[in-house]
Design a protein around this nucleic acid. Structure first.
Length: 731
RNA sequence: GGGCGAUUAGCUCAGUUGGUAGAGCAACUCAUUUACACUGAGAAGGUCAGGGGUUCAAGUCCCUUAUCGCCCACCA
């Protein structure tokens, strides 16, 4: 090319592509264009008002700090879906938001206070909540900043928070409806009590840890019982054995006998039940219904007495006699000593391994307790829903194929979880969250969306499990309980994309809430991604010193487009992704490749005259056909959520066919004047098409390049942004 | 105890309804004021964890074993 042509080429092409320079400016252009908002797309004639819709609600990150590479992966996959669908001309909505995360956020702030030597009770509920809100606000701002850096084309005008006023109204409305339908009840039931966090938690928030302890065999009357927890045994007055156990055939269900126990004689009652495993230990056990779920169930079955042994702080109650007031851990050995002195210890096994339940957030050791709490009944038939229970509604949604889970192996896991589902304890004794919309006055209870007007009512101090409000997310973000246009237009949402680790916590609960409250599924497709790990397979974390823990560091180094490609190519749903910095660097080079190919195309066509139709010669036509064929396949793959395959194809075509073959061929044709107009037109067409098709994957560099392309004939839309161009199904 | 996933080139991973294996990075040879060295051309590298089966044909489907990882579960 001669120097005259160079004047037509923007000067910045003389330097390598700089993602760090371009990306913030490009994002700003998108944001000010308003095209993240489907209403504006319709207003400006980009999208047809009656177009099909495509909607995703962003899994709201917890306001507990900053985003990590796992969030980055989620943003990348969703942004690809959203950009693709927007280019298909659909009314495309992606709603951002953050999650107050109740326990997680509160315990984070409590830990910060601890460093200042303060406890939440020193501040009081109001001041403490202020503190949490301040922390949440700061986290929110960081998260939003990071999200924008990652190029997410979210409609920020619709941003929501799980604890803002609108979502609070949704929560109160849903609670009231469930209460009126008899699905929410308050009852004395066994719950997971966290003595450290001083709150109940759900089964899903338990983390089991293996512990090696001593296992004791005690003489209990004529029987020998085994236990790892002597400190719970004070009130054990039921002794259980299998009805078919020949060793104990002489005893009948209901027989009573007096036995000598820790603090003196006790009247024990024989219970025969097949829950007992005859093979385990001596085949006999005593039960502690107040502090064990299984024992509780048995006690319910036979209407047995239940006695509390341990209080909510983990201390022994007066029933323990001389041990009352002691902490469990301190009491254990002393109790064994006493039993020893009474000759009731038969043997002690060392190194007994068992799992203890701990609280996910506080780390406290869970002590099951019978408490007065609020529950959601998952088995009660619901008249409004054909007498199906919540459990059945959840099963039907997936069984009926109204919801498809990708990869489908998670469907099995989903059903297994539902089959084992028990009533959901939704009340939490923490301050940060949606306060339960129930008021008490003496013996009276009032449940309402608004507080009762009369004097003297006191609201329940407990708050709701954070997943209660998250469960409403697909429709609370669209304005429910108001019957908004958004709700009508965008619900059920198209896709729910998230990590497979919150299948139970969140996805199942959204299905529960939506099928119950609205009678529709919350989304049609669930796409589950895997966990992001460092190249060596370690979990990403700052404490482990993995270089790539902060996505913004990667972006600063290689650009967002490179990170996106590294996260998409070679990644498959449900499987873990080991993020390799070499990989990211490699795709960073691709950005520059696109940049330089653009420069070459611009230089090559600078003198071309496209005002008259140009016929492609047979060789060039064949190249065009090949590209069209590739696009056909890539489009199919995009529709099937196979982004890895589609992205890989486009990447390779651009580099190894367009750049290596077509560009090289065109050099010869143009300089030697062999069908030069055909070569120029092919360059132009292929480049244009590939830039469009690559846009969902590498939005920044493609948008940047698009802005520098000249307007030729009717091939480009005058200065329109690439983000709202049409996806090139065929060129 | 039950269930699931992984095992493919030195490393990290793809492989779309079965049709004699691919990418990135690394390593090798050559080219070099070229749109691009963030380059090009070429070569090399795999008995697809082991064993068995179905099939004209298996990385792909079935059975089984091993190793690693994950999830679920009340064994007192």
């Amino acid at each position: 090319m001669n120097t005259e042509n160079r004047h037509n080429i923007p000067e910045e092409f003389l330097r390598p592509y700089s993602p760090t320079e371009s990306e913030p400016l490009v994002y700003q252009t998108w944001e000010t264009s308003g095209f993240f908002n489907p209403d504006i797309c319709i207003e400006k004639g980009v999208t047809k008002a009656d177009a099909e819709h495509f909607s995703i609600v962003l899994p709201p990150p917890n306001v507990t700090g900053t985003l990590h590479t796992g969030h980055a992966l989620m943003l990348v996959i969703q942004d690809i879906m959203v950009r693709y669908q927007r280019m298909l001309g659909k009314k495309t909505l992606w709603i951002p938001g953050t999650d107050h995360a109740a326990i997680a956020t509160q315990s984070k702030v409590e830990k910060l206070l601890e460093k200042e030597g303060l406890k939440k009770h020193d501040l009081g509920r109001e001041a403490f909540l202020k503190r949490v809100e301040q922390f949440a606000q700061e986290s929110h701002d960081t998260i939003v900043h990071q999200t924008k850096k990652m190029g997410a084309s979210l409609d920020w005008s619709r941003e929501a928070y799980t604890l803002d006023d609108k979502r609070n109204l949704a929560v109160r409305t849903a609670f009231k409806k469930m209460y009126d339908d008899g699905l929410i009840y308050r009852g004395h039931r066994i719950v997971n009590w966290d003595p450290k966090g001083q709150t109940t938690i759900s089964d899903d928030e338990l983390v089991y840890q293996e512990e090696t302890v001593k296992f004791y065999y005690f003489k209990y009357g004529p029987f020998t019982i085994g236990t790892a927890r002597p400190e719970t045994k004070f009130g054990d007055k039921y002794v259980v054995m299998h009805p078919d156990d020949a060793r104990y055939a002489q005893y009948n269900h209901g027989d009573k006998l007096t036995i000598e126990w820790i603090n003196g004689p006790l009247e024990a009652t024989i219970i025969k039940d097949s829950m007992i495993d005859m093979e385990f230990g001596t085949g006999v056990m005593t039960i502690t219904p107040w502090h064990s779920k299984e024992d509780f169930d048995l006690a319910e079955k036979y209407n047995l007495d239940k006695e509390q042994i341990i209080d909510q702080y983990g201390k022994l109650l007066p029933i323990a006699g001389e041990f009352a007031g002691m902490k469990i851990k301190d009491a254990r050995e002393k109790i064994v000593e006493k039993l020893q002195s009474k000759g009731l210890v038969e043997k002690v096994e060392e190194n007994y391994k068992h799992n203890i339940a701990t609280a996910e957030r506080s780390g406290g050791i869970i002590e099951p307790q019978i408490m007065h709490q609020w529950f959601i009944d998952v088995n009660k038939p619901i008249a409004e829903r054909n007498n199906k229970s919540l459990k059945e509604l959840m099963q039907d949604a997936v069984n009926s194929k109204n919801i498809e889970i990708i990869p489908d192996r998670f469907e099995k896991i989903y059903f297994h979880w539902i089959n084992n589902l028990k009533d959901w304890c939704i009340s939490r004794q923490i301050w940060y969250g949606h306060q339960i919309p129930v008021w008490y006055k003496g013996e009276e209870t009032y449940v309402g969306i608004e507080a009762p007007l009369e004097e003297g009512w006191v609201q329940d101090p407990d708050t709701l499990d954070t997943w209660f409000s998250s469960g409403l997310w697909t429709f609370s973000t669209l304005g429910w309980p108001e019957q908004t246009t958004d709700l009508e237009t965008y619900h059920p949402t198209s896709v729910l994309e998230t990590g497979h680790d919150i299948l139970f916590f969140w996805i199942a609960r959204m299905i529960l809430m939506s099928t119950y409250v609205l009678g529709t599924v919350p989304f049609k497709t669930v796409y589950l991604h895997g966990m992001v790990r460092a190249a060596n397979g370690q979990k990403m974390s700052k404490s482990l010193g993995n270089a790539a823990a902060d996505p913004l560091d990667i972006i600063a180094k290689y650009g967002n487009d490179a990170l996106r490609m590294a996260m998409i190519i070679g990644n498959t749903p449900g499987n873990d992704l080991k993020l390799d910095e070499n990989n990211i660097r490699g795709y960073g080079k691709f950005g520059n490749k696109i940049w330089n190919a653009t420069r070459f195309v611009l230089e090559s066509i600078a003198q071309a005259d496209f005002s008259e139709p140009v016929e492609l010669d047979s060789e060039d036509q064949q190249s065009m056909d090949e590209l069209n064929e590739l696009l056909k396949v890539a489009t199919k793959e995009m529709n099937e959520f196979k982004f890895s395959l589609a992205g890989d194809k486009l990447y390779h075509y651009f580099w190894h066919t367009f750049a290596d073959i077509i560009i090289e061929r065109s050099k010869k044709k143009i300089t030697e004047g062999i069908n030069a107009p055909s070569a120029q037109r092919l360059l132009y067409l292929q480049h244009l098409t590939l830039i469009k098709a690559l846009h969902p994957f590498m939005p920044f560099v493609t948008e940047k390049v698009w802005g520098l392309l000249p307007k030729i004939g009717n091939e480009t839309n005058d200065n329109k942004l690439l983000i709202i161009e049409s996806w090139p199904t065929s060129a």
